[in-house]
Amino acid sequence: MRKVKVYITLKEGVLDPQGKAVKNSLNTLDYANVNEVRVGKYMEVMMEDAENLEAQVEEMCEKLLANPVIEDYSYQIEEVIA
């Protein structure tokens, strides 16, 4: 069994209104040194190991988990010991 940790982030240059709102809130809480916040997504995908696991994960990110028009993705594959 593998645990795949997938991180989705907005591409550089794509405006992040949500991140901006969070940044403003942090500033309001007196964290004056916060300059920018970008909000992304984190997913854990549990899957059976396969020979082409990495290619599969790559494909899943391209096809569904991320939208390559606006998002970048990265992932880590970890072994799960039952």
Partner: peptide, 17 residues
């Protein structure tokens, strides 16, 4: 249509959320 690739581009949350 955008997510299916039938049209180019993508949608983001509204500028003012």
């Amino acid at each position: 249509l955008l997510e299916s690739g039938l049209l180019p581009g993508a949608m983001l949350p509204n500028r003012d959320l």
